[in-house]
Design a protein around this nucleic acid. Structure first.
Lengths: 147, 147
DNA sequence: TGCAAGTATATTGTGTGCAACTAAATTGCT
DNA sequence: AGCAATTTAGTTGCACACAATATACTTGCA
């Protein structure tokens, strides 16, 4: 990680990227059982969290928040629509814009999701301050990679 | 992040999981252009890194190192075989075991990959010690989530 | 020795990610 | 007003992730 010329620099265990990738996958796997009762995948849960905050949002703004594009979001939103958690309507002023809104049923899911963050913090077995500093470091890295 | 009863606790921006997920995706996207010349995807690059270290490994051991299962690895390894980067043979002693070894061509890729970690560190725009502590925090979290 | 239990990999099906492309509506400029 | 450039979503194709299942081989034990 420090010296590019060092022997073994190009080694799996030396790569931050790999640890980040594995941890993110592990996190998603850990969420899966908690989300089963809500019939949501991990990404669908992230989308619902945005909708619980915003009520109505278009695909572009949603993609910007989640760092994802329409190729990922369009089919996902159709699946959420099929489940009855969201509505997909078009803006009256601009027909290009697809407005995503949360349904009554989708809104009710929020109640059931209320204790998920707590449970995950528990599963992480880490102190709050350590999680916060990890989050801050990731945010800095993310910002640097995406500008 | 701290107080489960706090208003807005169940909010996208409060979730470590989301930042981790976005950062991991962003990292993968950042690698893609660097890996284009090697005709490798990000995950294929991780697999090749293991093979540059090990020369020969079976699918189970590879999966353990990468925290992935055969459902992900088998098709990926077939693609690497098609590219001519690895061989997929069976163990003589135990016919169930698939032995993956790196080819001459695959070995040569290592030369071209030599400067990728350096370039990524540069893209991250972060100090080495900060990257190291981020890596350590992720490792702790990963270990906690996977035992 | 024979066969149940266990192990290693492969297959199938669903759901992401993302690049490249298409379609349709809007905006801006002359 | 008219049309090119832009914007917003959607589509397509490929490569992951991963749960569930299938297949083939090996081991252990009665």
């Amino acid at each position: 990680m420090i010296d590019p010329d060092k022997e073994g620099y190009l080694t799996l265990d030396n790569q931050l990227c790999f640890v980040l990738y594995s941890t993110s996958n592990a996190m998603s796997r850990s969420y899966q059982p908690l989300l089963k009762a809500l019939d949501l995948t991990y990404l669908q849960y992230l989308v619902m969290m945005v909708l619980w905050e915003e009520q109505v949002i278009n695909v572009k703004a949603l993609g910007k928040k989640l760092h994802l594009d329409s190729g990922t979001l369009t089919p996902l939103l159709k699946r959420l629509e099929t489940k009855g958690y969201v509505n997909r309507t078009r803006s009256q002023e601009d027909e290009r814009i697809r407005l995503i809104s949360v349904t009554e049923v989708g809104e009710q899911l929020k109640e059931q999701a209320q204790h998920i963050p707590e449970k995950m913090m528990c599963l992480s077995k880490m102190e709050a301050d350590e999680l916060i500093s990890l989050k801050a470091a990731c945010e800095r890295l993310l910002a640097n990679l995406t500008d």
